[in-house]
Design a protein around this nucleic acid. Structure first.
Lengths: 229, 229, 229, 229
DNA sequence: AATGAATGAGCATTCATTCAT
DNA sequence: TATGAATGAATGCTCATTCAT
């Protein structure tokens, strides 16, 4: 009987079916380990995650985990890399190379919310982990987040560039500002989505677009808001 | 000589002046402990924070920490409570009770960004900690975040209610949606502010308002954006 | 009942009386820990030594060991330093500052054998450990051995300098050669002593002096041995 | 590609040329494994040696190592046996069966130093390993050392027997005493040789003989040294 | 004959928490 | 009130050894 059953699960430890699976080729096993790590890191946070649990969930022993990914840090970084890749890919493929910036942003955001709804763990690992655990992790997380933001900036900047006739307040680094705001909003809306399970990604995007894009369009057209004095 | 000096500081351990302080009244000492805890939790994250360092930073011995706050979890919860209180208060006082919803939102957000700029640790502890460390912490963090969002919802909802004539897409729980988005955006903009140290809180608010409020106003007026098909 | 009793002693684990001793002042406890470490390192070798056993033998828990000496390596280095100090002191006090080099060497060697007979562990730790475990250990062991050899070299060199009229083969770095040889011989003779428990240190010294000093004296006087051809 | 390449070499791991070798006769392969083991044990010490590295260095997989030598302990014992054999043989062949005891001792010691200079690993494995790792190893090491000492004792005892007319202090087990001392000296001089790379084995022997043999000869002739009182 | 894949068991180190004073 | 001294319980990581092919 596998070690999983013998261990006292702490709280509601993630478990899996107890199928004896052995002798997998390296590449397959490696992906499975990353799958497991992703879930555990997402559930517990980096520090609270325990390598033992990752091994259990992957259905192998701890030494295998270390043989494949080298260290807890290595596990985490592998997760970040793979999931960033996945998210960016989903984003890009959806945004495509169309002509209408609004359309592309809408498609990209929809893909984003769809991805997060389908792979909550990925997002949680990428954006809900304190980057203070180590130099390497900080660097990796920063890079990952930057690369996600870059996708948005690409779309936004594009839209702004095209539409920016006499825009006043939307200027130089505004695309970056907006990207920060949009990604932050999107992050937070992943929580909102959990509270509204029925809502499809398109709905979330529609709301967010209405909340922001309409305004940005108007602003670009010169209708600037200023605090009343 | 205090234990602080004998221990090898790990990396750049937060330190304080080595003044001998004794016999403080309970309430004062307790606040000092929470001050220390806040800094350490913000710097390291909940799990990585070490009670020893908190005690050192507070200038007292570990047993005192336990005497006052009971446990590491107790420390953390005390931090959350106090800082939520502070943030909400700052928000409320700024938003005031004026008549113009936009003005109130603007004032509230400005206070928010001003507060975060001045008390980064508070915000980091409230919004950058994984809530999965324990039941109690999850509950406390959820409550704290809800209560921050409630402030925003109050302003937004107010504004929406007053202006919402024939709004189509802004309906029942839209205020909550917008609050999520705004708080998330604000959180993320917290990072943006670190990259642009010169920008005053008012500037950040102005940009964010232009990005969202203008649009929301239009939407309320019936100008809805829909994805091109 | 203490943890000592609960643990399954592997082979013949060194144990001690199970007296509950608590709250010792730091300096005393530290010496006791070094005592325990010395025994365990001597018995098992650096790698095979287990910190748990050291803690058990010192009658405390493992965290105390780490609080006091920092790491297994720290424990080992502390042992080396203290015991080198002791051995060198014993050597020096015995050799004194007399006039007769032979007498001083004899006294020093006698002290040496006496010390080793009485503190086998010290010697074993200083001279029977592979210095390849870490940079720090290699350095420390090298220094320790050098400093022991230096004592001998001091005496030998002294004797040689005084008596060296027309010495042919005993010249420049001969003192170092002889020191190596003598210390090596002495090391090996500590084993011989274990096989001959009755023999007093003076006896061992007498034999060794007869084996070497007489010859060196003659050599200094010009009577050189050369291989027959 | 072999596993050697994928593993990160820890510090300066001993490596070898990456030639693919297969289907060697049992006896050859076994010797190659012992060669590899010898180097690794010498470099790291018994405990710190890792079977993986031995397999890598031997250019085969770990299971083969176990198939041939059974266990880490088995590897070590095989090393001890083979190298003892080699050293003793070198010693014997050099000492020959001549008539002059001094000459034979000189030749034996010269062979010894030559052997050690040429096969440092062998000596290190035989004389620089703590014998406390296991019963079997302790026994094997003791036997090996005894058998090396026996060679010396043979020569010494022979010399003493022949020359010992009215020797006073050289008596019953003196040969064993001298053998201990000589082998210990020789061991330590092994280090000295590393510090003086130019010195040929003959030179070392000459110095050692002058240091000891001349004296022993005199002592045998009755000129005994005694401590001044 | 040979090996890639796998693991049980151990070990150094850390940390929240509590006594004894 | 205040603390120096102490520890139980993890947790990351390693290594000798063995299957399944």
């Amino acid at each position: 009987m596998s070690k999983i059953r013998r261990r006292v699960d702490r709280l509601a430890r993630v478990t899996d079916i107890d199928r004896p699976r052995r002798r997998l080729p390296r590449s397959v096993r490696e992906q499975e380990i990353i799958d497991a790590a992703l879930r555990v890191f997402a559930k517990r946070g980096y520090r609270a995650a325990v390598v033992d649990e990752i091994a259990d969930l992957a259905g192998i022993s701890k030494p295998m985990v270390y043989l494949y990914l080298g260290s807890k840090e290595g596990l985490f970084i592998a997760c970040i890399r793979r999931e960033t890749q996945r998210l960016v890919t989903a984003f890009r493929e959806a945004a495509g190379a169309g002509d209408d910036p609004a359309r592309r942003l809408w498609a990209g955001l929809t893909a984003f919310f769809g991805f997060v709804a389908a792979h909550r763990d990925s997002w949680v690992v990428l954006h809900r982990q304190a980057p203070e655990q180590s130099e390497a992790i900080a660097a990796e997380l920063a890079a990952a987040r930057r690369s996600v933001r870059a996708e948005v900036t690409g779309l936004i900047g594009d839209g702004i560039a095209r539409g920016a006739g006499g825009a006043v307040h939307l200027g130089r680094d505004d695309a970056d500002f907006v990207a920060h705001a949009l990604v932050g909003a999107a992050d937070s809306l992943t929580d909102w989505m959990e509270l509204h399970p029925g809502e499809p990604p398109e709905g979330v995007t529609l709301r967010l677009m209405n909340m922001t894009w309409v305004g940005m369009r108007n602003v670009l057209a010169g209708e600037v808001w200023a605090p009343p004095r």
